[in-house]
Write a protein that binds this DNA or RNA. Structure first.
Length: 195
DNA sequence: TATAAGATTTACT
DNA sequence: GTAAATCTTATAT
């Protein structure tokens, strides 16, 4: 687990919650239009498929938008939220089981100037916290929805920082108050910004 | 066919 | 603190 990038088997794992936790500290890399940008994943949320009211796939929902959730683990699920923001998820579990992990925040590593341009923050401090800001900084758009994370423009790289269990903060997910009891599940994981 | 709400961010009062 | 931007889906006429 400490050497190299995660292989396909990492994303095929059965427990989406543990995948969300283990993604913390890994590098999310994009190479789009010849521009390479990346960041350390610092916040994630798990969406546990058909039994999770907060998930787009709750109750077995399957639409043109969420089709990528039904692909095999290691696929990108990118959708438009509120008509404006692109949100990036990593699909987990085997094909046909629509689990996914939302990447909510990164710490910039490579291509910081390119991310500034994308975020239109050339002089103001570059912010990459929040799922919409994260996707915009990395150039992730719905045109990349369904992209495989092996051999394509989006890659999950090696773990860049080692984390102790005590460093990882679990809590309820954000913006899912409509999900009833499922809104209280501790499916959100993050680390302190200065860790 | 119409309306409401959503895994959000930004700007303005 | 409130509202606007604006696409997709679900539910109600």
């Amino acid at each position: 687990m400490t050497t190299g990038a995660p292989g396909r088997e990492f994303f095929l794992r059965d427990d989406v919650v543990s995948v969300a936790r283990d993604l913390l500290g890994m590098e999310l890399i994009t190479c789009i239009g010849g521009v390479r940008t990346s960041g350390i994943i610092t916040e994630t949320e798990a969406y546990a498929g058909v039994h999770d009211r907060a998930s787009h796939a709750w109750g077995g929902r399957r639409t043109a938008r969420n089709e990528a959730m039904y692909a095999q683990g290691g696929t990108a699920y990118i959708y438009l939220c509120y008509g404006i923001h692109h949100l990036f998820n990593v699909v987990t579990n085997v094909a046909g089981t629509p689990h996914a992990v939302l990447v909510r925040s990164i710490r910039p590593v490579q291509g910081i100037e390119a991310m500034r341009t994308r975020r239109r923050q050339l002089t103001t401090p570059l912010r990459t916290d929040g799922p919409g800001r994260t996707a915009e900084a990395l150039g992730l758009r719905t045109t990349l929805n369904g992209t495989d994370l092996f051999g394509g423009p989006i890659t999950i790289g090696p773990r860049l920082i080692l984390l102790k269990p005590v460093d990882i903060i679990a809590g309820p997910r954000i913006g899912v108050h409509y999900a009833g009891e499922d809104a209280l599940l501790p499916y959100r994981f993050r680390i302190e910004p200065d860790l």
